[in-house]
């Protein structure tokens, strides 16, 4: 069965969807990605959908589920490269993708992920400092 490759770059997992994103592949991606996030303690996932020619409500749901699952596994998810025609279509279709971060290019997406990971780590450090103070 076809699978979508997941590449690791530092703390980030990179997924480029270049095949026809049909149902089994989409569900397999959700499972593979969840495992890889945990195995690699990944802090971010960048999903490049620039090669997709359409997103229907099933794919929208899978992309939403990937983002939610990643969040539960302490990992941020950014969707990059959405074609304007797809943005128009899914809006009209009624797909809202709540809570999903997007960036126009992979480069911007990487920056966004790095910032999100950084602010979270800083947040944790300051929380620890705060805790130390209270002691």
């Amino acid at each position: 069965m076809d699978r979508i490759p997941i590449l690791k770059i530092g703390d980030v997992l990179l997924v480029t969807i270049q095949v026809d994103f049909h149902d089994r592949i989409a569900i397999a991606l959700l499972e593979d990605l969840s495992e890889k996030i945990v195995d690699n303690s990944a802090k971010g996932v960048l999903i490049d959908i620039s090669a997709l020619e359409m997103v229907d409500s099933f794919m929208g749901r899978i992309l939403g589920n990937i983002s939610k699952t990643a969040k539960l596994l302490d990992c941020h998810c950014v969707l990059v490269g959405m074609q304007p025609a797809i943005a128009i279509t899914i809006t009209e279709l009624g797909i809202t993708l709540p809570g999903i971060y997007t960036a126009l290019t992979a480069e911007d997406g990487m920056k966004l992920l790095t910032d999100m990971v950084k602010s979270k780590t800083n947040g944790k450090t300051s929380a620890k400092k705060q805790e130390a103070k209270w002691r």
């Binding site: 049909h22 149902d23 359409m54 025609a85 797809i86 128009i88 279509t89 279709l93």
Partner: peptide
């Protein structure tokens, strides 16, 4: 599920043939 993909591809071919704009092609395929 594979048939859904075939339907999508056939529809795509016809929309391209009819010179629909990219946005309309995407809407029809979706």
């Amino acid at each position: 599920e594979d048939d859904i993909l075939d339907v999508r591809n056939s529809v795509k071919r016809v929309t391209a043939l009819l010179n629909f704009s990219l946005v309309n092609q995407t809407k029809i395929i979706s």
